[in-house]
């Protein structure tokens, strides 16, 4: 059972340099690809990843800042949105369609954090970004993905965007207690998250939705970031539901030992992370069968041919999200040779 680290390093490097045309649809999510690839590289620790981060470091950091909007409110998902039409105009007046979105803003902050950029303090307007984030908070306490032209939160609202808001807030507050000019409404958000809790212990994406392991992780992380204790005794049903996500089937079945995200679904690499991450937030990761999940990742979804990890046994091609989340899982389980992960900011600990 071994991890082919050199191959994974090559794979992530390839994702950063060039992607096959198959990924064209992801053009508007380019920063996500960069984030997951960089996270994977840094977890692999060896000499090479550090080189990748340090070579042309300034240039790479500048490239990220190109996504920062002129009005300093947040980041766009891709340079595709930058029209360059308003460059001659007053810098404070950004295009009303060229808007920041929550996910891109978080990915940028995480990338800059991983690059250890020293200039964030002076180059980013943290109060302005938090103003954007707080504007994305909807009436019910949840967060939407961006603002409409009228300045009102627009888009899908669920626990993903709630976690994004909390993580942005954590990274911007830089370890200190948050003192933003415009902060989010914490109590309303906590209420919203608790409304997503179902009778089986899992959380749905929004109230009344079916329990889902990825969204459960988002909910728990948000609570943690908002300063909640997460006492395991108060989350017994959740712990139970999470443990039951590990699939026990006949040996020889590729799903065996892997995790699903909902009842009666097949195993998927990323759910090993969402579930074990959730359990770790509750200090209960010892309850699952750790050997069998390692076995699943290493022997079933590790892509020995091209490096990286695939989503399931049936998918033949790796992608950066599943590849880095597989490494995050292995890191949480203490797999040798991997850097440690800071769960709440989703960046490696040096």
């Amino acid at each position: 059972m071994s991890l082919d680290a050199p191959k994974h390093i090559k794979y992530f490097q390839l994702c950063l340099d060039m992607l096959p045309s198959r990924f064209e649809e992801e053009d508007s999510n380019k920063l996500a690809i960069v984030y997951f690839s960089l996270l994977g590289l840094l977890l692999l620790r060896g000499k090479q990843p550090e080189d990748i981060v340090s070579t042309n470091r300034e240039e790479k950091i500048e490239w990220i800042y190109k996504h920062y909007l002129p009005d300093k409110s947040g980041f766009r998902g891709s340079l595709l949105y930058d029209l360059q039409l308003n460059q001659a105009k007053d810098n404070t007046n950004s295009d009303e369609y060229d808007v920041p979105n929550m996910a891109a803003t978080l990915f940028s902050l995480q990338i800059l954090h991983m690059f250890k950029d020293e200039k964030t303090e002076e180059r980013l307007d943290r109060n302005r970004i938090m103003k954007f984030v707080s504007q994305c908070q909807a009436e019910d306490g949840s967060f939407k993905s961006c603002l409409g032209r009228d300045g009102i939160a627009f888009g899908d609202s669920d626990l993903r965007n709630c976690m994004i808001a909390c993580t942005i807030r954590r990274i911007l507050s830089n370890g200190e207690t948050s003192n933003f000019q415009n902060d989010i409404n914490v109590e309303k958000l906590k209420d919203y998250i608790m409304q997503c809790l179902n009778y089986n212990g899992g959380l749905g994406g929004s109230p009344k939705e079916e329990s889902h392991a990825g969204l459960t992780f988002c909910g728990l992380t948000s609570l943690k970031l908002l300063g909640a204790e997460l006492n395991p005794n108060e989350w017994r049903d959740t712990i139970k539901w999470l443990c039951h996500r590990q699939i026990q089937s006949q040996s020889g079945d590729d799903n065996n030992g892997g995790f699903n995200g909902r009842e009666n679904k097949d195993a998927d690499t990323c759910y090993s992370f969402w579930v074990i991450g959730s359990l770790k937030l509750l200090n209960m990761e010892h309850l699952i069968d750790q050997e069998r999940i390692k076995q699943y990742l290493i022997t079933v979804t590790q892509n020995k041919f091209m490096g990286g990890f695939t989503k399931t046994n049936e998918v033949k091609i790796s992608d950066p999200l599943h590849s880095s989340l597989a490494l995050c899982t292995l890191s949480m389980l203490g797999f040798p040779g991997l850097a440690q992960l800071d769960l709440v900011t989703m960046t490696p600990i040096n």
Binding site: E26, S28, Y97, R149, G155
Partner: peptide, 14 residues
């Protein structure tokens, strides 16, 4: 071609 292009959706609504 690209249903994830949120700027285009926003423009379309307008």
């Amino acid at each position: 071609l690209n249903p994830e292009f949120y700027t285009a959706w926003n423009y379309r609504r307008d």
